[in-house]
């Protein structure tokens, strides 16, 4: 079993939700959703700068294989690509002609397909498509993207993550409505990008399920879970691909939102606005980029 982790504040608590941690090779990017900004933290100097403003409640961030940065803009109701010094470029904002509702988090495969969670009644009250789902934005030869619905059984999907071999898409189903589920699901990924029937890897019962998650280099799922309302509290929960919990690490924040590795250090954001770091975790991340 892993030893205990000690979390420290990499930065003073911001006071509103932080999310979307993504490592660009030298800086840790993360979003501050309510403040519509993307921040960049330099672990060498311990300094942070505002990298981008007016991000339309950008939430999840991720890089594709070429190092292009994509964001889930919840209030912008789109997947956007961010290029230095330019306004965000719309990747997809519709599915079958109807507007997306609230993109939350994303995972990108080596073909450049961007799988993202889109949630009804989350950020925007005005309904676009009539359901919540995992949707993929598939790149076309002309450089455009086409959105394709990929799950048909999601009611409030949140974090998502590919396995090391990209043959499984892990999806956090995190619906807090009565009679709904907080679960970690594993969907087999077919060669055409469609998903098969999910396997239930873990059920959180009545407690807070997974928000964001990241993959370790040995294929473990490192997930942000828990809350102060019920259950064992805010936690980094480490799962094997079969759903076995191999370690749990309580966090000093009440509700961790997302996490990513920089070397052996795990950076964690939170509802309260933390950027926490657990050093020397004994694990490293598996990233498509850098």
């Amino acid at each position: 079993m892993s030893g205990e982790w000690t979390f420290q504040d990499a930065l003073p608590v911001i006071g509103s939700i932080t999310e979307g941690n993504a490592w660009d090779g030298s800086r840790l990017l993360f979003t501050n959703i309510a403040m519509n900004r993307l921040l960049a933290y330099d672990p060498d100097t311990g300094t942070v700068v505002t990298e981008r403003s007016g991000t339309n409640a950008a939430n999840g961030l991720n890089f594709d294989r070429e190092g292009r940065l994509f964001a889930c803009e919840g209030a912008g109701r789109r997947i956007a690509r961010y290029e230095d010094g330019q306004p965000g470029i719309t990747v997809v904002d519709r599915l079958n002609g109807k507007r997306l509702n609230g993109p939350n988090d994303l995972a990108i495969d080596p073909h450049g397909r961007i799988y993202f969670s889109d949630r009804i009644n989350d950020v925007s009250p005005e309904m676009g498509i009539e359901f919540s789902a995992i949707i993929s934005a598939d790149p076309q030869p002309d450089g455009s993207y086409v959105a394709v619905q990929r799950t048909f059984d999601s009611t409030m999907p949140n974090g998502l993550l590919f396995s090391v071999d990209y043959r499984t898409l892990y999806v956090a189903e995190s619906d807090y409505g009565a009679g709904r589920f907080r679960q970690l699901r594993g969907y087999p990924v077919n060669s055409d990008g469609s998903l098969g029937d999910y396997e239930l890897l873990h059920d959180f019962g009545p407690h807070r399920g997974i928000d964001g998650m990241t993959l370790s280099s040995d294929g473990l799922i490192v997930a942000c879970t828990g809350w102060e309302v019920s259950g064992p509290g805010g936690m980094i929960t480490v799962f094997e691909p079969n759903g076995r919990i191999v370690a749990t690490h309580p966090t000093p924040c009440q509700r961790p939102t997302n996490c990513t590795f920089v070397g052996e250090d795990l950076y964690v954001t939170s509802i309260e606005g933390h950027l926490l770091v657990a050093r020397d975790t004994g694990m490293t991340g598996h990233l498509l980029y850098p």
């Binding site: 079993m1 259950g231 064992p232 094997e240 079969n242 076995r244 919990i245 191999v246």
Partner: peptide, 18 residues
């Protein structure tokens, strides 16, 4: 599921070991 297992739970439900 993840197979036959010994679990160690804290009394708040935290899974300490499997």
């Amino acid at each position: 599921g993840p197979g036959p297992m010994i679990y160690v739970f804290a009394t708040n439900g935290r899974v300490l070991e499997t």
